[in-house]
Design a protein around this nucleic acid. Structure first.
Length: 865
DNA sequence: GGGCGCACGC
DNA sequence: GACGTACGTGCGCCCA
């Protein structure tokens, strides 16, 4: 039987809001009404199993009732902002459930529901109306129940005609007469003065309706009551009319279009956004029950698979470099091979891979490394779902196959669910793994066409196929190769620093008058700002700030400060680098970092375990760490090549700024040139201070910092910083134009893009919050610059790997540090190799200005400067 | 185990 | 005037 659910959208929102304490999610949105709503929807869907569903909202401020009586619904308290902000998300929530919603000016939700319930009655539907408004009970009928939410929203009172009779001794339609006589405070319906519920019911029991009361007015007892009734006859009749739900709203849709399918929804994503963790678990559990989604044929014969396959090697640990795969799964979309790794014939597997037309996967870099554990050298993957997903929206956190394929409508168990987390960690049985991996590899396989379609639509197919995928293979090589580290150099540094730290420590204790944990900002704060009573410069959320800039401001106030600064520098070196790096050296005397290709919003890479993109260089003390990174042997050297001012060259290209383009074309020092323009002086008049200021402004442009950030860098006021930026923009009008254009683009499209079409979505560009919007604007301005620079060096890496001449050399790419590449090169090839790689880098992408690559080489990373 | 303060690079 | 201000990684501390 058809079952139609009609929800009174606004009424339930209010009920849910007042029923629950004020919750909010991490982005600061209040979510209590939303949560109550979601819980109600869950309950209704579970208990009632509706076939048709609609949520009706009040839309118009002026309905036909207002025209009849302008005070209608007057005097209502205004909606609290904490609830107001939830109305739009509530609509989003309803959409995510796949539930239709409707609102129309002129009519109220009551009228929409009244009309639909009439239509339902006529067509033999069972209809349930859910509301927090008793007026609606007038709609109860043989086929229509009215669910009234009492205190809270989960406590429901069901109004059938019988129950209306039990409660009021009336027929449902007489509710209108009841309101006509007694009025309704909440809707500002007046009714008859002096007539409350008791009197009204008495009158209706005797005379049936408002009209009946007046037909028998002489029989009405009580002088005052009769007088009131007589004097307010018009009001009573009007009140009745106002309370009458209109059941002939003209719709441009029929009941059929309200069809509801509980399995067709996007609940998972929306629960995540609102942080409804308890509901999320339900969704995951449901998904687990339905895990027979892919009931496909398992085969133990790899060679039985077709030519278009997806491969997935599974190991739970993050670090694929040092953990061998436990299972191998391969599918062609209809037959799937799954086996424990030790039972796989690796020769057979390699043969199958080599003879396939296409090999699809999720995270091919990981797969390449895992294959190498099996002695299989295979890199010829044709697609990578993970990389695609990242390109489609880099703000989406890449977690795993399950979370990614969710976007393409596949619901499979998450890794966290299968392997457990924290104290619930578990080792799944082989049977569980086979079922899990079958889902996983099938979901990866079946996502591919959808992924490609989206990439095509967003014009990123090329970026994916010709840049990110080949880059993944280059990065796999680099990770597997590692960089040689001379542990003895770190050991001797460690001993040296240990001695010096102890020495500094004793000075600090002496000056403080007691021993304490210098590494604890909390304890240090007490010493400095309470015991030594130094002035508090800055506070953090949790107490006194003891950051470098604070300490520097206190330098001349107390002798302890210099020791603290030295201690900080040395202990950072010791813990993170000298000791930290030793812990990462493997049996091959090398460090194997991993590059994350799907994290940084701008398209940059990042590096973990360890991070080799932040090895000290600025301070001599720290720079010595680089002595530990050495060439593979005495016949090799390390070669470092870095792009000079790549971001500003990109900026010159994107904006077409004439002055800047000219400066780069003639290889002028860009910071000096900037100073000349900003300060309006000749070349020889640029002081070192001017150049430093200009350099900081350029830095700000590249990284998208605010006037505040610039003021902090230069130790000037925000006003002065703003003046610098304004001067800069006036000096480079094309840059100024670009900055305003790109913000407009972001507003229009919702995203900005790089020279190679990499996107970054900027939703906050529309924000009413000044800070959020300002930040979004700077992001819009900066992302194309930094992102294009990332595109360029990535392209250089790929071109290098694909360049026949370059590959003839025995050079090995070791590291990428945003604008720099580090190679290990045979000594006898170095002179010949440099121009080849330099040329590749400088022509990775043709800009309007030349790209310039500087280089240095030596026996270790310190020497390459 | 997670949040925070801090510091390193680009 | 708004009130927190490039990104990312990793360390030690501290609290649960």
């Amino acid at each position: 039987m058809n079952k139609l659910i009609l929800i009174d959208g606004n009424s339930i929102a209010f009920r849910a809001f007042y029923a629950l304490p004020l919750l909010s999610n991490q982005s600061g949105l209040h979510t209590n009404a939303l949560f109550g709503y979601a819980r109600l929807l869950e309950k209704i869907i579970e208990d009632e199993e509706p076939t048709h569903f609609l949520v009706a909202f009040d839309a118009g401020k002026s309905t036909f009732r207002h025209q009849a009586y302008k005070e209608y619904k007057g005097g209502r308290q205004s909606t609290p902002p904490e609830l107001g902000e939830q109305f739009a998300p509530i609509r989003k929530l309803i959409d995510a459930y796949g539930i239709k919603r409707y609102e129309v000016s002129e009519y109220e939700a009551d009228d929409i529901m009244g009309t639909l319930s009439r239509m339902g009655d006529e067509e033999g539907f069972k209809t349930i109306i859910i509301t927090g408004d008793k007026d609606l009970t007038q709609l109860a009928s043989e086929h229509t129940d009215v669910y009234f939410t009492k205190k809270g929203i989960s406590d429901i009172e069901v109004y059938t005609p019988d129950h209306v009779n039990e409660v009021y001794g009336l027929k449902p339609l007489q509710i209108i007469d009841l309101k006509g006589l007694m009025g309704d405070k909440s809707d500002n319906i007046p009714g008859v003065p002096g007539v409350g519920e008791k009197t009204a019911l008495k009158l209706l029991h005797a005379y049936g309706s408002v009209e009946g009361v007046y037909e028998n007015i002489d029989a009405v007892g009580g002088k005052k009551l009769k007088e009131n009734l007589t004097e307010n006859k018009d009001t009573a009749l009007m009140s009745k009319e106002l309370a009458t739900i209109y059941r002939e709203v003209p719709f441009d849709f029929d009941l059929d279009s309200l069809k509801f399918d509980k399995d067709n929804n996007e609940k998972h994503a929306i629960f995540k956004e609102f942080e409804f963790n308890s509901l999320l678990e339900n969704v995951d559990a449901e998904a687990a029950e339905e895990k027979e989604a892919f009931t496909d044929e398992l085969t133990d014969d790899l060679s039985a698979l077709g030519k278009n396959i997806s491969l997935h090697l599974e190991v739970h640990e993050d670090n694929y470099l040092f953990n061998a795969p436990e299972y191998v799964a391969v599918t062609d979309g209809s037959k799937t091979f799954i086996s424990r790794t030790e039972d796989v014939d690796t020769d057979e597997l390699l043969k199958v891979l080599n003879h396939s037309d296409t090999v699809n996967s999720y995270d091919i870099k990981r797969q390449i490394a895992l294959l190498s554990h099996l002695g299989i050298q295979f890199t010829d993957f044709t697609s990578d779902i993970m990389l695609a997903s990242f390109l489609l929206d880099p703000s989406k956190k890449i977690i795993g196959v399950s979370e990614t394929v969710q976007d393409y409508g596949f619901s499979i168990d998450s890794d966290d669910f299968v392997y457990g987390k924290g104290r619930n960690k578990k080792t799944p049985t082989e049977e569980e793994m086979i079922s899990f991996l079958n889902d996983k590899v099938m979901a990866v396989h079946q996502s591919l066409p959808l992924v490609k379609e989206k990439l095509e639509k967003d014009e990123m197919l090329e970026l994916w196929q010709d840049l990110e995928m080949p880059l993944s293979k280059v990065l796999a090589d680099m990770e597997l190769r590692g960089i040689t580290v001379d542990v003895s150099r770190l050991k001797s540094m460690q001993e040296d620093i240990d001695v010096r730290l102890k020495e500094i420590e004793s000075h600090i204790y002496e000056l403080a008058g007691e021993e304490f944990n210098i590494n604890s900002p909390k304890q240090l704060g007490v010493i400095l700002f309470e015991k030594l009573a130094l002035p508090v410069i800055k506070k953090t959320k949790t107490g006194y700030s003891t950051a470098v800039d604070v300490l520097e401001a206190l330098l001349n106030k107390h002798d302890i400060i210099q020791y603290l600064l030295d201690y900080r520098t040395l202990s950072k070196l010791q813990s993170t680098y000298v000791v930290g790096l030793q812990n990462e050296i493997r049996d091959d005397s090398r460090i194997h970092t991993r590059f994350n290709q799907t994290l940084a919003q701008t398209g940059r890479l990042s590096s973990v375990e360890p991070n080799l993109q932040n090895i000290p260089i600025r301070i001599e003390e720290g720079r010595k760490i680089r002595r530990a990174f050495v060439s593979k042997d005495d016949d090799h050297v390390l070669l470092a090549l870095d792009y000079s001012q790549i971001e500003l060259r990109v900026l010159a290209t994107i904006t077409g700024d004439v002055t800047m383009t000219e400066a780069f074309s003639s290889d002028t020092d860009i910071h000096t040139k900037t100073a000349m323009e900003v300060f309006g002086v000749e070349h020889d008049e640029v002081t070192s201070l001017m150049r430093r200021n200009a350099k900081a402004v350029n830095f700000g442009i590249v990284y998208g910092i605010s006037d505040y950030g610039l003021s902090q860098n230069l130790h000037i006021t925000r006003k002065e910083a703003k003046a610098f930026i304004d001067n800069y923009l006036d000096s480079f009008p094309e840059v100024k134009q670009f900055m305003s254009d790109v913000v407009q683009d972001a507003k229009r499209d919702g995203y900005v893009k790089t020279l190679m079409n990499r996107r970054r979505y900027i939703p906050d560009i529309q924000s009413r919050n000044f800070n959020a919007r300002s930040f979004a604007e700077r992001t819009a301005m900066n992302s194309p610059i930094q992102g294009s620079a990332a595109d360029i060096i990535k392209r250089a890496m790929v071109k290098y790997a694909e360049d026949e001449a370059a590959q003839k050399f025995n050079a090995e790419l070791l590291l990428q540090i945003h604008d720099e590449l580090i190679f290990d090169v045979p000594k006898d090839e170095i002179e010949a190799f440099i121009p080849v790689i330099q040329n590749i880098m400088e022509h990775a992408l043709e800009l309007k200005v030349p790209l310039k690559v500087d280089y240095g080489y030596g026996k270790d990373w310190y020497e390459v400067k």
